[in-house]
Amino acid sequence: MTVTIYHNPDCGTSRNTLAMIKASGEEPVVIEYLQHPPSRDRLRQLIAAMGIPVRALLREKGTPYAELGLADPEWTDEQLLDAMLEHPILINRPIVETPRGTRLCRPSELVLDLLDHPATHFTKEDGEVVTGDRGIK
């Protein structure tokens, strides 16, 4: 199984997701998207595969979201993509892509449904324990 994670090592949710993937026996392709942002076409493909609107991939916290005025509903999808490409920190994370699907894994345990052999017990960085079938409490 090929697993790809668009990862930010400074993000706890992203680190937990990566650790859950590895605990499930997978060695993912890790794309640190702040250093290697996806192209416009790739970003469109990921959004389409997730089945979400472009706006749903925007991250507000710790980004220039407010300064750019991105809350304004008048921004078109193309303008939102332009902003994400200019400021990759605006792309919410982690995005995980597997043959089972593509998903924004917030919370991190959403990744477990994308894995062939998900870990059934995992302790997150903050001490929260994820257990059970498919790893969900």
Rank of each mutant, 00 (worst) to 15 (best):
G69K: 02
T13I: 12
L34T: 08
G101H: 06
L115N: 07
S24Q: 06
T2G: 07
L104V: 06
R42N: 04
P73M: 06
H117A: 13
F122N: 09
M50C: 05
T120K: 08
T102A: 03
N16H: 06
C11D: 15
I31T: 13
L34N: 06
N92R: 01
K124F: 08
M20G: 11
P99G: 04
M20E: 14
L90W: 01
I91S: 10
T4G: 01
V3P: 07
T13S: 14
L90S: 09
D41S: 15
T17I: 14
R106V: 03
I21F: 08
R93C: 09
E26T: 00
R59L: 03
T13L: 14
I47R: 07
L58W: 06
V111D: 08
E97Y: 00
D41W: 00
P64E: 11
A56C: 02
D41E: 15
D133G: 03
L110M: 15
L81V: 12
G25K: 05
E74G: 15
D82R: 07
T131Y: 02
R93G: 09
V130H: 12
I95Q: 09
P73K: 09
E74W: 00
E74P: 04
M50A: 08
G132N: 03
A23S: 15
L80R: 02
L85C: 05
V29Q: 14
E128A: 14
V54M: 15
C11V: 14
I95H: 10
W75D: 01
T102F: 03
T120N: 04
L43I: 02
T131N: 05
H36F: 11
I89M: 14
R55W: 05
D116Y: 05
P73L: 05
V54S: 06
D10Y: 07
E27D: 13
H87Q: 13
L110A: 15
L80V: 11
P88Y: 07
A56M: 10
G127C: 13
V30C: 05
Q35Y: 01
E128Y: 13
G12M: 09
P37C: 10
P107L: 11
E32V: 10
D133H: 07
K124A: 14
L110S: 11
M20Y: 04
M84R: 00
I5R: 01
A119D: 10
P88E: 00
V30P: 02
A19Y: 06
A83F: 00
T4D: 09
R42W: 02
P28E: 14
R55V: 02
K61H: 14
I136M: 06
D77E: 13
I47H: 01
S24T: 10
K61D: 07
K124T: 12
R40F: 00
I91W: 05
I52C: 11
D10Q: 11
A119K: 04
E26Y: 01
R59Q: 11
